[in-house]
Amino acid sequence: MPANGKPRVAVFKLASCDGCQLQMLNLEDELLDLAGQMEICYFLEARSQVLDGPYDVALVEGSVTTEHDLERVRDIRRKSQTLVTLGACANTGGIQALRNMQDVDEYTRAIYANPAYIHALAQSTPIAAHVTVDFAINGCPISREQLLEVLTSLLIGRSPQLPAHSVCVECKRKGTVCVLVSKGIACLGPVTHAGCGAVCPGFGRGCFACYGPMESANADSLCQGLAARGVPRPEILRLLNGFTGWAEEFRSAAERLERATT
C-alpha cells in the first residue's frame, strides 16, 4: 500500500455473470465508507471515471475464455501490485468450464447461425492458469463478509484471514442437521471450502461445492462414501462436474470415478 494517498483499486470482469462484483455493491452499509478510503480507479459497472494503472489492488471476476481475455489478464497483472480473484469463475473457470470437455466448435455451431463471428478459446480457464494470483476469494458468488475482510485487510496492510475448513464445520457450528447422514442426500460439504455459512444444508439440500474444493480435499473417499450410501454414479459424477468442476481436485476425482465405472 502506498504510505500516503489512498490505495488505487480496480475491478475487472472477464467471462462471468456479474454476481461477484455485485457483491461489492451489495455491501450497502460499507460501500460509501470503503469508497472513501480507497481510490476506485476502474469499475465499469459502478462508475464512468476510468483512471489508468498502476493499481495497488486489482479485483478480477470471471474466467479466461477468449484471446482478448488472455491479453487483458496479462495486462492487469502487469499493472497491479496485488491481484485478487473473485469467485468460482476466476478461480476454477466457473460453470462455463463445463464446456472444457466438449467440442467448442460444435457448441458455437449449435448456438450461432454464423459461427465465424464467434471467437472463443476451446477452454474456460482460471486466472491462475495464466498469471500469478495473490489472493483468491471463493464462492459462486463470493461472500460479502469475505470480500470485506480482504478489502479492509489490504487497506490496513495485513494478510486477509479466510477460513480453510469445510462446509461441514459450518453446519456443525450452526447446528444444522447433516443432510448426508440424516437423509442420505448427496453433499459435497466435506470437501468444500467454507464461507457460505452452509446455506444449502440449511435449506435441506446437499452442497454442490460452489465455493470450490478446500485444501487437501479427499474427494475420492467422499465419492466412495456417497456410493456406499446408494447415490448413483452418474449423480456423483454430475456433482463433481459442476460449479467448480474444473478444479484439479474435482476433475481428477471425476476422471478416476469414470475410469472405475468403465
Binding site: 466457473g94 449449435a110 474456460s124
Partner: peptide, 23 residues
C-alpha cells in the same frame, strides 16, 4: 465472450437447471 449455457445444459439433470441458469 459467450458462456454457452444452452449447450452445456444438454445432458444435465432437470433438477440442476434452476441452479445452473441462475449463473
Amino acid at each position: 465472450a459467450p458462456r454457452f449455457f444452452e449447450a452445456f445444459l444438454r445432458g444435465r439433470s432437470l433438477r440442476e437447471v434452476p441452479d445452473f441458469t441462475a449463473r
